[in-house]
Design a binder for these strands. Sequence first.
DNA 1: AACAATCTCGACACCCTGTCGAAACGCGAT
DNA 2: ATCGCGTTTCGACAGGGTGTCGAGATTGTT
Lengths: 220, 220
Amino acid sequence: MTTVRAAAGNATTRGRRAGRRSGDQRELAILATAERLMTERPFAEISIDDLARGAGISRPAFYFYFPSKDAVLLTLLDRVTAEADAAAGDAFDRMADDPRSRWGDLIGRFHDTFRAHKAVVLACAQARGANAEVRELWSAVLEHWVRCTQAAIEAERRRGAAPDGLPARDLAIALNSMNERVMYATFASDGPAVAAPDVVDVLLDVWLAAIYRSTTPPSV
Amino acid sequence: MTTVRAAAGNATTRGRRAGRRSGDQRELAILATAERLMTERPFAEISIDDLARGAGISRPAFYFYFPSKDAVLLTLLDRVTAEADAAAGDAFDRMADDPRSRWGDLIGRFHDTFRAHKAVVLACAQARGANAEVRELWSAVLEHWVRCTQAAIEAERRRGAAPDGLPARDLAIALNSMNERVMYATFASDGPAVAAPDVVDVLLDVWLAAIYRSTTPPSV
DNA sequence: AACAATCTCGACACCCTGTCGAAACGCGAT
DNA sequence: ATCGCGTTTCGACAGGGTGTCGAGATTGTT
């Protein structure tokens, strides 16, 4: 298994070899083409030739910018990763003020990040099965949300607002997994799905029930 | 988009053209080879040549038995579909006797079906993104579980054991989606995952909390 | 103008899929 | 036994995708 990442794993070097001149626009054109085509058909059906032609270069020239088609997806996913980490940021502060609103913010942010990059996320979900790097990077995103969720659950238990029960980490994994799968189904219209406008409400209700055994958790 | 299914959509005709002689063993050999290889590497990395050689025939001969690689997976999935439908069967009877045990049975059956065909299910999850037929067939399985769950929730609400709240269908979708994703992560060791022995317990707790707002729901 | 780094692409080797037609096989009817 | 006819097999081909190489074009610097 060869790796697409630079040795240092630096996200900024995922694409081309170091040093740059005028070709930056070409690199961006490839990324833009990829994002556009992904909204039209599954990632697996997009060829490197499609990406190259879309960016106005020949197929061999593509390889100057990216080592493979997957590397393009990984670069796109890097952006989403950064945005997702930022979005999780302070959503967990002052949970005691108004738990329902705070958890709603949290799920809403996950939802917004997911939806803003729907095409990339759906493509990653498809590629995840076949590409270990996509799988690992996506796992890292999810792990971050799980940790934040776990910490918030533990804090709520400490202040007596939430009852003890399942290990907080297991609960956090289950709830975040649910969010991922439910949102995926809704955005992809894949199988039984919750209607798009209701997604956040439905998920929030399950979260509150699972964490507090109530949909009206106590504030301070 | 060409279809792999026979016009009638009959599961028994998914493979070869009608009429048969001694080649049944070959067809089974292909299926057995597929199931074995899927435990070793992702479905996308298995070629038709691999399947043919594994069954002791040449690559063109493979096409006598199946029209494509996906058709093999679909045939395997047909078995799982049948088993899953059967497993859901009477798991919803006498829910009022002992809700916790009954829901536990239900999740346990989903879990057992999933685990018994781990390789097939993981391969389908991978192929789902690229193949519409796999996606539809898997959706049908999930839809069946969702309907059963929805009916059981509504029955529990009618007898006053479960409080009103979210539409039962939305709740059923969310919970079954959670089960699918959590089990997938656990079996595939993909990203944050619940430890294998705890999966059913964790899921059951979330189900009971979401349906009853309690982990000790009332029996008759 | 000359050099070097950057960038481009024609041509190639390789792998995989799906199809065709010819040939081999199995078996009941003559 | 052998003829005939469906069943089964495979060599060979066409088409399309990936990744690589080396030669050439472009651009910025001196």
